[in-house]
Amino acid sequence: MGFRHKDIIGLKDLTKEEIELLLNTADSLNEINSRDIKKVPTLRGKTVVNLFYEASTRTRTSFEIAAKRLSADTINISASTSSVTKGETLLDTAQNVLAMKPDIIVMRHAISGAHEFLAKRVSCSVINAGDGAHEHPSQGLLDMLTMRQKFGKLEGLKVAIVGDITHSRVARSDIYGLTTMGAKIFVAGPPTMMPIGIERLGNVTVCKDMREAVHKADVVMMLRIQLERQGKTLLPSMREYSRYYGLNPDMLALAKKDAMVMHPGPINRGVELASSVADCDQSYILKQVENGVAIRMAMLYHVCGGEPSEG
């Protein structure tokens, strides 16, 4: 069973076998990250361009470390310090980057679908590091890897996703990926942040009350309120949000005894996550970051061997 995609745009496009292959590869590659010499020669001579049109610490650093551990050369381009500020379009920027012969472009963009647009027009591989409110496949995969390490499987898990679902690409990638792998997803959040029809994306149940979603959950995934993406009108106040949709020790007690607390980061302490919960034994937030490097190594490795997918 191999991987036959030139690009990774979203988890919606991946089969169960392909997701399993990526998770298994990452599981094996995790060992490299614990060595004294954290480098293997696999992608020697390949060039990875990190093209980031949006702010990012974790994802960009993680992709860069992943590429370097596979011996690829990496170049980072941030929109804020590039010719994009001089009015260059996405395609023009990409074609100029392409003229320098990279093998993989890792891109983050504020517009949903930007990657699909680009992947159809360039010859190199495109990996989505987040596009608007669409998908964030590497985050979805590392979430699944972290869950699988704890429970041994994903099938049958109850996963609660709480917060700003409308603006969350993490929620969408988690929903697509976890549905493919046989988990059940329960979403909760303010009605103004709950997109209509979200239950049609996969095995999703919409809960009116956060307690309903968290009740007997194996995993509680908390999301950040994305203030940069919305007007101020969706929430009466942060205090009210925190009271109804924040995870505090009392709320966590409703979940299964050994439930995992997860968060894609950056966390807003005291808003969606009580500080004591963020730092408790059940919190896997830093484990997610650790697994992120291995997952991104697996993605870079497999797209390098993939062929253009048909259609």
């Binding site: 069973m1 191999g2 991987f3 036959r4 292959l21 298994n24 590869t25 599981d27 094996s28 590659l29 060992e31 490299i32 293997v40 020669p41 696999t42 992608l43 596979l70 697996a298 490795y301 497999h302 390098c304 061997g305 993939g306 062929e307």
Partner: peptide, 18 residues
């Protein structure tokens, strides 16, 4: 991860644990 024939494979082999 140490193979010298990565380009020759249409698809990449699964990676085992060291």
């Amino acid at each position: 991860m140490y193979r010298d024939d990565i380009k020759g494979h249409a698809e990449h082999l699964p990676v085992g644990k060291t």
